[in-house]
Amino acid sequence: MEVSIDATRCQGHALCLSADPAVFDFDDEEGKAFVARAGVPDGSADAVRKAAANCPESAIAVRPEGGRP
């Protein structure tokens, strides 16, 4: 599973950072989240899916490894 954040949509609500800080990181100056590791570890799959479903700006895309969003 791979995850990405659309920086043009992200407004820094930071719910993803709470969902899984191993996968999502945060730029304190820009006030935006970014993906720390695009390849999602197996143990994080649920948290990442949850982060995508709850993102207020629909900025998080999840896709199978090597697949299309």
């Binding site: 945060f26 304190d28 100056e29 006030g31």
Partner: peptide
């Protein structure tokens, strides 16, 4: 202005 303010309100902070 948001860039000036952002660090003060950074989630981890």
């Amino acid at each position: 202005y948001r860039r000036i303010l952002n660090p003060f309100f950074a989630p981890r902070r």
